[in-house]
Simulated assay, not measured.
Amino acid sequence: MTTRERRNGTEQASAVALRAGLTREQLDALTTLEHFRWELRFVRRPLFLEPIPVVFHPDGERYAVLEADGSLNENPGFEIRR
């Protein structure tokens, strides 16, 4: 097994872990967004609350939260450190 094969396996596992706990609507919206090169970078998981998936635009400057109904919230009420 090469380093690249190990890395790809790790990347696939982390992609699956990021999607864990998302609603069907969020997953469907994410699939559509990925066609436009948006990327799921992280998921905030506050205690006792639903996961908050954060997606980034391909330019890396804009981000949005995928709401539980699959809609995009480009003004989520929090800042992301860069």
Score class of each variant (00 low, 15 high):
Val16Trp: 03
Glu79Arg: 11
Ser14Asn: 05
Phe78Ala: 13
Phe56Val: 02
Val55Glu: 03
Ala64Arg: 01
Leu30Gly: 01
Pro58Met: 11
Phe78Asp: 12
Phe48Tyr: 08
Ala68Asp: 02
Ala15Pro: 00
Glu61Ala: 14
Ala15Phe: 00
Trp38Leu: 04
Gly77Val: 00
Leu27Pro: 00
Leu66Val: 07
Pro46Asp: 10
Asn8Cys: 03
Phe56Ser: 01
Val65Arg: 04
Leu49Ser: 08
Glu34Lys: 06
Met1Glu: 14
His35Cys: 15
Asn75Lys: 15
Glu11Pro: 06
Arg37Val: 13
Glu61His: 08
Val65Asn: 09
Leu27Ala: 10
Ala17Met: 09
Gly60Pro: 11
Gly77Ile: 06
Gly60Asn: 11
Arg4Ser: 09
Leu22Val: 04
Leu40Trp: 02
Gln12Phe: 01
Ile80Gly: 12
Arg62Thr: 12
Pro53Ile: 01
Asp28Gln: 15
Ala64Phe: 02
Thr2Ser: 03
Asn73Gln: 01
Asp69Gly: 04
Arg44Gly: 09
Tyr63Glu: 13
Phe56Cys: 04
Leu66Ile: 07
His57Pro: 11
Gly70Lys: 08
Ala68His: 04
Leu33Ile: 07
Leu33Ala: 01
His35Tyr: 13
Arg44Phe: 04
Met1Asn: 13
Gly77Cys: 06
Arg4Pro: 04
Phe48Asp: 14
